[in-house]
Nucleic acid binder design. Structure first.
Length: 666
RNA sequence: GCGCCCGUAGCUCAGGGGAUAGAGCAGCUGCCUUCUAAGCAGCGGGUCGCUGGUUCGAUUCCAGCCGGGCGCGCCA
């Protein structure tokens, strides 16, 4: 209704009956809804609020307002040379006024708006389509933390959630003119890495030797998988041998001391052992990043290491920062904040000086939620910083370097307490911008346990599925379907593979984004590899169909000399069917769905609107089989293909915003 | 135990102070000489967890209870 809501409200505001009631455009706009049944009308105006303010009953208000329709004939004359009038009639129905709209006028407006905002017809033009854009966030910056996996661990399905929810939010926000800085807050610091180093030295002595010798690749060809197994093996052994715990802490302390020395340009004083640990850590980080990169490439996501440096260690950020931030996020791992501008230390000093923090059990803590709730730990009893400290530092950094008006964190709901504490701590430290901090939480990925219940992923219990495995299975299933159903496409092996990737990965992405992000996801192979119904492949299917009808039109146009792109002159008045009207209304509503998706950090609101559009499209497609969309009647065919084009662009635009890849055939 | 999140059709989920609560999956029935059937049309399927409260009106808001999940000081 969005493209239509404004003009409808403007028209109504000009009615004498609305003027008499003192109702302006905005007040009217807020009360416009769709009636529950088609035969009631096209839009309804709820009169509850107006009636309350006027001190009369809603039914009476509805009657009064509807009476204004008697002036429609007069209005007709006044608007004779302007845009065609939209409202055709008004009837009071209980507490509502139901309006019938001029279909031709409305569809004309919707199609024109989509055509105006979405130039070009190829999928290469699609990134420029902007239907539903707004200026809401112009001049404002959102710093968006998403994906943020831990290094030395493989990416599992639950990482997909943060990555794709975050990526979609980034694109959706950008559509509302926000500048969005995506940040991949790599989990690359903490005592865990001391344990990893200790484990590597214990089980693979050559790693320690190479590192001591200054080898920059002490891990050789080790994979992330091996690193992860080493870490787990070491952890298992800790349970039997408590001394290993201390060994891990020791290795981490060496590493932290070294990196601090490095930042202070005193690395030579830090000793060989620290440097060796640093080399191991740095290599492990590199191995992990290489693996992440492979996965991100599949998903179409890109991050750059921050600060972006050239060989001479000068910032060579980019000539086009706006574009850079649109196309890339930044890797700023936790480790960055250990040394960055001394932020951690300053936060600690600040908290202690202002008496916000206090000493407790050998640690320095902030009680954010009372003494009976766990505190934020700034300094652990072994003197090391905790992850809270680094998170606080990162918030300050983001605020300072990226001027974030909002700082948002796309992180699972298990960490609700953590973020509540962190935001509260910022507030207690006097940072009033903490009000602009948001935890964008999402549900867990659950797996079936041996006794048939659903439970959180657990590597040890074998309840974990690697992201790569999931994507492979999905793409593989799509390959099979292409072979089975589209022999033409299958013959072009290269093209078929591209399509299989786009559709297979798209299926996984759409499955993740179509429902509210806070729902837990029950991982079920049968469901995720079932491509019927409200799925990614279904969405792409409708997009592809709209493309092939357009091609069909061009063939027919050539044969019958209609003119190659003559559909662009299609007359909206020819679109008289109910399903065409319904479709136009759904298209008109897309901008509002986008706006809400942006405001609520909820991609599913956009995805749902797209599902409705796709379903209505598919129904229309089948129900026009008798006359065909491209049929004998030139004028009807032109008008319908004009609608086809609009649907194709809105679907294409929406799917791109969700992070999917478009295809021409499938 | 405390804190937070969640209970809508057999399953997975939309919706949300207002007009007869909607989809998909699964099941059953039809529909491919014709623009892609990864589709469409139809059928069956509901005490919106329970009990109170606020309201002209509650599935929606509030409280309590029941059921499920997550979190709960030095892992991140």
């Amino acid at each position: 209704m969005d493209v239509l809501r404004q003009p409808i409200a403007e028209e109504l505001a000009a009615w004498e009956s609305f003027k008499a009631a003192g109702l302006g455009v905005d007040a009217i706009k807020a009360q416009l809804v769709r009636p529950p049944k088609r035969d009631m009308g096209d839009v309804a105006l709820g009169c509850f609020v107006f009636a309350k303010n006027a001190g009369i009953k809603p039914n009476e208000m509805a009657l009064k307002l509807a009476a204004g329709s008697s002036q429609l004939a007069v209005r007709e004359q006044q608007t004779a040379n302007r845009e065609p009038r939209i409202i055709e009639s008004a009837t009071a129905a209980g507490p509502y006024v139901n309006f019938k709209l001029s279909r031709a006028a409305c569809i004309g407006r919707v199609l024109s708006e989509i055509e105006r905002t979405c130039p070009g017809n190829s999928i290469d033009d699609a990134p420029l389509w902007s239907f539903g854009a707004s200026e809401e966030g112009r001049g404002k910056t959102l710093v968006l933390d998403f994906s943020s996996p831990n290094i030395a661990k493989p990416l599992a399905v639950h990482h997909l959630r943060s990555t794709m929810i975050g990526y979609a939010i980034k694109k959706i926000r950008e559509s509302q003119s926000w500048r969005v800085v995506g940040i991949n807050h790599l989990g690359d610091w903490g005592t865990g890495f001391g344990k990893l180093i200790a484990g590597l030295k214990k089980y693979f002595p050559e790693v320690g030797q190479r590192a001591l010798a200054g080898d920059a690749r002490p891990l050789g060809d080790m994979t992330v998988q091996v690193l992860n197994e080493t870490y787990q093996r070491f952890n298992r052994e800790i349970k039997e041998n408590e001394e290993l715990e201390a060994a891990g802490k020791h290795e981490f302390a060496l590493l932290e001391r070294y990196i601090e020395a490095l930042a202070a340009d005193k690395a030579h004083e830090a000793g060989a052992a620290g440097k060796a640990n640093f080399l191991i850590w740095e290599h492990a980080r590199g191995v992990s990043l290489a693996e992440f990169e492979r996965m991100y490439a599949h998903l179409g996501v890109s991050f750059h290491v921050w600060p972006v440096l050239d060989l001479h260690r000068k910032r060579v950020f980019t000539d086009e920062p706006a574009r850079f931030y649109r196309e890339n996020g930044l890797y700023i791992g936790e480790s960055y904040y250990v040394t960055a501008e001394d932020l951690c230390r300053r936060i600690i000093a600040d908290a202690v000086d202002s008496k916000v923090a206090e000493e407790s059990e050998g640690a320095i803590v902030i009680y954010t939620h009372g003494k009976d709730q766990p505190p934020v730990i700034l300094v652990k009893n072994d003197g090391a910083t905790a992850y809270h400290t680094r998170d606080l530092a990162s918030a300050l950094y983001r605020r300072r370097h990226f001027n974030g008006d909002e700082l948002a964190y796309v992180v699972g709901g298990e960490q609700r307490l953590h973020f509540a504490q962190m935001f509260k701590a910022l507030e207690m430290l006097g940072h009033d911008w903490a009000k602009g901090c948001r935890h964008i939480d999402f549900g867990l990925v659950l797996f079936k346990t041996a006794d048939g219940k659903w439970a959180k992923a657990a590597t040890r219990a074998g309840r974990v599925i690697l992201l790569e495995h999931l994507l492979d299975e999905s793409v593989d299933a799509v390959r099979g379907i292409i072979k089975e159903k589209n022999a033409d496409l299958a013959q072009d092996a290269q093209q078929a593979e591209r399509v299989a990737q786009a559709v297979g990965v798209g299926a996984v992405i759409f499955n993740d984004l179509k429902n509210g992000r806070r729902n837990d996801i029950k991982f079920d192979w049968d469901e995720i590899l079932n491509f019927t119904g409200e799925t990614g492949p279904y969405m792409l299917m409708q997009f592809v169909r709209m493309g092939s009808v357009t091609e069909k039109f061009h063939e027919a146009a050539q044969q019958k000399a209609w003119g190659a792109h003559s559909w662009q002159q299609g007359d909206a008045a020819k679109l008289a069917r109910d399903d065409e009207w319904e479709l136009a209304l759904l298209l008109a509503n897309f901008p509002e769905a986008l706006r809400r998706a942006s405001a609520e950090y909820e991609p599913s609101l956009a995805a749902r609107q797209l599902i409705d559009i796709a379903a209505q499209t598919s129904s229309w497609w089948t129900n026009t089989k008798d006359t065909r969309i491209v049929g004998e009647d030139a004028e009807l065919s032109k008008a319908r293909v004009r609608l086809v084009n609009a649907v194709r662009k809105v679907l294409g635009r929406g799917l791109l915003l969700l992070g999917m890849t478009l295809v021409e055939r499938m």
